[in-house]
């Protein structure tokens, strides 16, 4: 029963320090000292369990901590507080176009990304043709990455992410760019290739979220305000956004009116 979870977060928080204190940050790290300077909590006290085979969307405004949450799950950055438990092999695409070596060809980069994800060269030999075919980059695959457009890089990155066999797949706004046709194809691929896998999906498109996920997390200012059924999550998120944005606009108008009356 205990082994059923794929991702478990226990009271996870991540605080980013101010840039200027970097040097002290290093010193404190080395001396086990706690930094006195306050930073900004990007995510705070997040407890979350994602079961095996679930597909979960993360919803939230820019700056609500979505990317930080994904990074903590992926393990590229360590949480300041709490604990992250991962059960299974984790992969995915979290920063578009990153992770490629510019001077090397697309094909070489497939190998580089593959080994970084824990495959051997032989295993990559087995999937490389599929990756190239799916990305539709047959004509460019032996040219250096620096000649690729951003759309091409995303196609390649996405194609690698779905062909590498991992139990947990993190996808951060992978469908936000690229042309309409590839987006459709990618969405279909997520549903077909990643069936039965644990998916964590970040997107601003309600349509895509509904198509991919059953459940959703709503993040606000680094905290989880809802975790459950995707439809109610979307409703909550949209209502909240609409409401808050409206309020902010109103407040601004109010301010403007006041300054206007003062000047006149």
């Amino acid at each position: 029963m205990e082994e059923d979870y794929a991702i478990q977060l226990v009271q996870v928080g991540k605080k980013y320090k101010e840039n200027a204190s970097r040097l002290f940050h290093v010193r404190n790290k080395l001396l086990f000292r706690k930094s006195k300077k306050e930073g900004k909590w990007s995510i705070k006290d997040i407890s979350l369990t994602i079961q095996k085979g679930e597909s979960v969307a993360i919803l939230g405004d820019n700056g609500s901590g979505k990317s930080t949450l994904l990074k903590v799950i992926l393990g590229v950055t360590s949480p300041t507080t709490g604990e992250v438990k991962i059960n299974g092999k984790i992969g995915g695409l979290i920063e578009l176009g990153a992770g490629f070596q510019k001077e090397l060809s697309g094909r070489e980069n497939i190998y580089m990304n593959g080994v970084v994800l824990g495959l051997t060269e032989k295993e990559i030999d087995g999937i490389v043709d599929d990756v190239i075919e799916f990305s539709e980059l047959e004509d460019h695959i032996d040219k250096p990455i620096k000649t690729y457009s951003s759309g091409m890089k995303i196609r390649l990155g996405f194609s690698i992410a779905i062909h590498v066999n991992s139990d947990i797949v993190l996808l951060d706004e992978v469908l936000a760019v690229g042309d309409q046709r590839f987006r459709k194809k990618a969405l279909r691929a997520i549903r077909e290739f990643l069936k039965g896998k644990t998916i964590v999906f970040v997107s601003h498109s309600a349509h895509q979220v509904r198509a991919v996920c059953e459940k959703a997390v709503v993040l606000d200012k680094g905290e989880v305000i809802y975790f459950g059924d995707v439809d109610s999550a979307l409703e909550l998120y949209e209502n909240e956004i609409v409401e808050r944005n409206d309020k902010e606009i109103e407040e601004k108008n109010e301010e403007n009116r006041q300054t206007d009356s003062i000047t006149t």
């Binding site: 990074k71 992926l74 393990g75 590229v76 984790i90 695409l93 979290i94 920063e95 176009g97 990153a98 992770g99 490629f100 070596q101 580089m112 990304n113 970084v116 994800l117 824990g118």
Partner: peptide, 10 residues
């Protein structure tokens, strides 16, 4: 290697 480091936990 910032790209790889931000992408993957190796």
């Amino acid at each position: 290697s910032s790209g790889l480091i931000r992408q993957r936990n190796f």
